[in-house]
Write a protein that binds this DNA or RNA. Structure first.
Length: 523
RNA sequence: GGGCCCAUAGCUCAGCUGGUAGAGCUGCGGACUUUUAAUCCGUAGGUCGCAGGUUCGAACCCUGCUGGGCCCA
């Protein structure tokens, strides 16, 4: 009788018996007067019971905390029966509260019906509050109603549900069995709420831009493709909202932000889900260095609200978000990687600063011939900047410190087609990426608003695509036209919300902060 | 894409060198009106992920497949 089908049949039999007794196992219309949290707040933790009271003779009649009657409702998550009395723990979305159902309180007939209720079912109850001998706030039921009969039983009460595959595929079960999972998503909501407040307070306008695009842009990524029938139009799901948000700056919204889903047709990993949530914001008359300051404030504020302060642990290791955060030029990170052995030796700044020197270093180090991603990336690179960026991606990133946020700066212009060139050195752009615990958390730059330069950069992307690079942007003619009407000097930034939530809630996988992560279909 | 690991009852897990499947929880029957993983007695529950192969004999060894996890590129 422990086969899954038989377990269900047993519960279905109880539901049928409830029906036969005139009770709807899916009843409606019971409105609780109080949540569990309401009552826990109303009757704070009582002093521990005196030893003699606990061990002494049982009181004939429990002592009530007040004459008031409370109506509560929730799922039975623990069930301890004694024949003529039952303790159950009820859970609602605010907390858990014990309910004590006694045969002599609810009556013989009602108690017979009550006996068909078990762990997993939803019930409503009415009664006064009391403190048990063990000191626990408890509602003493004077009446109990069946609300929902669960025909599947819950996972094991002690070990719960730990199979990660079931946890992700059946998130509802995960949430029932693992309360800390609900806490993570509650914090996620708090983070998003705080983000909105942070930007609203600073005069940013929240907007919504299209998530189906006709032109691929705003990031380097492979898209999901779809089709609109009535227009017979091929579309891609957006990989970034950037070009639309900057059109709004052209239109006169000097400060805008959008929190929304992006879609990138790439592999899955602990840090990648094909659809993920991104915050992007743009501020006219600001520069990328202004955004560094804003980013520090934002992260520290969020950590204060969610992680208990600017210092916390992630994966058992300390992280300190206290500003100011160090800045490191991309090339210096590559040099460090070479020194630390993450890349072949001999990569010094003079080599990275000179195209011919770097080419000969690549030749002599043998990297250019390697079959791995680094070798392929170097061979695909058509410019000095792309080679430097490839070395950073494939080695420099790993050399960054893990316990402090770090701004990587001095990005090459060739790999940043939407960023403003640095005034002193036009080969690089006014851009930073923020790395924390070795992961990219934000990407920001002063926006390129010179339409002629923008056209040249788009053309560079088109040329790269022609050379076989897959992750390039399309030439966005209308965006160039918008810039020709004039976009004020502007800085913008994107922050990945999922990774932010991972960091602040100490979760190891992006799947732990996305309610329904993409999974291969099961059976 | 490559490497390593995992898949046994509804859940959490044992299962030795190949000898024919075990526990706890859940369920069912019983006792029990202040429990906290309630307790006690009794009882039921299996396509060992799937498909092949080796063997007298496979949960266990081999191959392939499916799903998942970790690492790498």
């Amino acid at each position: 009788m422990s086969d899954e089908r038989e377990l269900m049949a047993e519960r279905e039999r109880k539901a049928a018996e409830l029906r036969a007794a005139g009770r709807n196992p899916y009843a409606n219309g019971f409105a609780p007067t109080h949540s569990m949290a309401d009552l826990l707040a109303r009757f704070p933790a009582p002093p521990p019971p005196a030893a003699e009271q606990k061990d002494g003779p049982k009181a004939a009649e429990p002592e009530l905390l007040s004459e008031e009657r409370f109506r509560i409702a929730g799922r039975i998550i623990a069930h301890r029966g004694f024949g003529k009395a039952t303790f159950v723990k009820l859970r609602d979305h605010t907390g858990e509260l014990q309910l004590y159902v006694k045969k002599d309180k609810v009556g013989d007939a009602e108690y017979e019906i009550w006996r068909k209720m078990e762990r997993g079912d939803f019930v409503g109850a009415t009664g006064p509050a009391m403190i048990t001998r063990t000191g626990e706030l408890t509602i003493l039921a004077e009446s109990v109603v069946v609300l929902t009969k669960a025909v599947r039983s819950l996972p094991e009460k002690w070990h719960g549900l730990s199979d990660v595959e079931i946890r992700y595929r059946q998130r509802y079960l995960d949430m029932i069995a693992n309360p800390e999972v609900r806490a993570v998503f509650t914090k996620r909501a708090a983070i998003v709420r705080s983000l909105r407040r942070f930007f609203d307070q600073r005069g940013y306008l929240e907007v919504e831009t299209p998530s189906m695009h006709t032109i691929l842009g705003g990031a380097a990524a492979r898209p999901f493709r779809t089709h609109h029938n009535a227009l017979d139009l091929d579309l891609t799901m957006r990989i970034a909202p950037e070009l639309y948000l900057k059109r709004l700056v052209v239109g006169g919204f000097d400060r805008v932000y959008e929190i929304g889903r992006n879609f990138r047709n790439e592999g899955l990993s602990r840090q990648h889900n094909p659809e993920f949530t991104m915050l992007e914001f743009y501020q006219a008359y600001a520069t990328f260095t202004d955004l560094m300051d804003l980013t520090q404030r934002l992260f520290v504020e969020l950590a204060g609200e969610v992680a208990g302060g600017p210092t916390f642990t992630y994966g058992g290791r300390p992280v300190d978000l206290s500003p100011p955060w160090p800045r490191i030029p991309m090339k210096d990170a590559v040099v460090t990687a070479s020194t630390k052995g993450l890349l072949p030796g001999g990569l010094e700044r003079p080599v990275l600063d000179d195209e011919a020197a770097l080419l000969s270093w690549i030749e002599s180090s043998g990297l250019g011939a390697r079959a791995d991603e680094l070798g392929q990336g170097l061979r695909r690179s058509a410019s000095h900047g792309e080679r430097v960026a490839t070395l950073f991606d494939q080695g420099g990133e790993a050399s960054l410190p893990g316990d402090r946020p770090i701004f990587v700066v001095d990005y090459p212009a060739e790999t940043s087609p939407l960023s403003r060139r640095n005034d002193a050195d036009p080969s690089k752009v006014d851009r930073f990426e923020l790395f924390i615990v070795g992961r990219e958390h934000a990407n920001a730059f002063s926006e390129l608003n010179d339409p002629a330069d923008q056209r040249a950069r788009f053309q560079g992307q088109v040329d790269a695509k022609a050379r076989g690079q897959e992750e390039t942007m399309d030439y966005d003619e209308d965006y160039c036209r918008a810039l020709e009407y004039g976009m004020p000097p502007t800085a913008g930034e994107g922050i990945g919300i999922d990774r932010l939530v991972m960091l602040l809630t100490d979760q190891p996988s992006i799947r732990d902060v996305i309610l329904f992560p993409l999974m291969r279909p099961g059976e």
